[in-house]
């Protein structure tokens, strides 16, 4: 009973905090994007436009719900909720500090990767159920991309697992507190693994330069084409939450989680700083680079990312076996 209560409270807390953080993450993105293009960005609603997410929410809530002719209503309704649910559920195992962790699973990393992989299904549902060619093509591309980039994502996470010998996320952080952050140590391969993980993360969350599933100039808006109102909002939020949680996971696996540099003032705030920095950098990349073509995307994945990350796993195994014994 007590465990259930704790779960409810912590779950509610995570959802609230994460949704709020994501809402203002969107504000941050718009502000950053504006500044990168010498614009001002949202500045009308509230001080510095800080209430812009609230205004967006109100707008979305007022929109009419439209079902396209021939749409599969059940799947059409279900998809946005599943996207958001999976994205948020991932956050349950993220250790924000030594104490602030929802469920410190032994297989936390597996949980994260599994839910990330499951995201493919609601995305495909949305694409299929819309009965729209753009949504369909967008969904197909998203599935192809997620599955392909899931491989380097898993392999680079495996590097961390092999190094640390645990799949528990807080276990990984504790290992890093003892031995140094994985992105910095051992010197070469750690950084490479981090970069590859980051690229795979960009691809998993459909961000430029890997945003072909919703390439505006080709596919209107990909799977979100036919969605209106809050269902569109949920798809959108799900994407941002996915990015946010992905940044948090990257910070945990490779950047030492709540550990401060040189163990200075370790705690929750370091985790927040790292997550926000990674989150912002995703948008920095998004507003700087161009979109890959579909075939370039696949070539990059299968010819470069996968072999390199496989090599990294082998290196990690050797290091673990001979150096760290």
């Amino acid at each position: 009973m007590q465990g259930l209560l704790r779960g409810l409270v912590y779950g509610g807390l995570i959802i609230t905090v994460l949704m709020t953080a994501t809402a203002w993450g969107m504000w941050l993105e718009r502000k950053l994007a504006a500044r990168m293009q010498s614009r001002i960005g949202p500045n009308v609603v509230g001080k510095f436009g800080l209430l812009q997410p609230v205004a967006d929410l109100m707008k979305l809530l007022q929109k009419e719900e439209i079902y396209p002719i021939g749409a599969d209503r059940l799947l059409f309704d279900l998809a946005p909720f599943l996207v958001t649910t999976f994205a948020i559920a991932t956050a349950a195992v993220v250790p924000f500090s030594a104490e602030a962790v929802g469920a410190d699973l032994d297989v936390g990393l597996l949980w994260v990767l599994a839910l990330g992989g499951l995201m493919v299904i609601p995305v495909w549902m949305a694409g299929w159920a819309s009965n729209n060619k753009f949504a369909l093509i967008g969904g197909m591309r998203a599935v192809a991309q997620s599955i392909s980039y899931g491989v380097p994502l898993v392999l680079t996470s495996l590097v961390a697992v092999v190094f640390t010998g645990t799949m528990s996320l807080s276990g990984i952080v504790k290992f890093q507190i003892e031995h140094g952050w994985l992105a910095l140590w051992p010197p070469g391969p750690g950084v490479v693994a981090f970069v590859l993980f980051y690229m795979a993360l960009l691809a998993e969350s459909n961000r430029i330069p890997f945003d072909i599933p919703e390439a505006e100039s080709e596919l209107v808006a990909g799977i979100t084409t036919e969605y209106t109102g809050m269902k569109f909002g949920l798809l959108y939020v799900g994407e941002y939450v996915h990015t946010m949680v992905g940044s948090a996971i990257a910070a945990v696996i490779f950047l030492g989680g709540w550990d401060g540099p040189f163990h200075i003032a370790s705690g929750l705030h370091w985790m927040v700083i790292k997550t926000v920095a990674l989150f912002a950098s995703v948008y920095w990349v998004r507003w700087s680079l161009l979109r890959f073509r579909s075939d370039q995307l696949m070539r990059l994945c299968w010819l470069y990312l996968v072999p390199v990350s496989l090599g990294l796993v082998v290196f990690a195994a050797l290091w673990r076996h001979f150096v760290l014994r």
Binding site: R35, S38, P209, W284, S288, L289
Partner: peptide
């Protein structure tokens, strides 16, 4: 080229916006 592009956008952040609030 990507790194150069990132540099350009990073430099822009410090620049004054050109927008005139009509």
């Amino acid at each position: 080229d990507s790194i150069r592009a990132l540099g350009v956008t990073a430099k822009n952040i410090g620049r004054k916006p050109v927008t005139v609030q009509f």
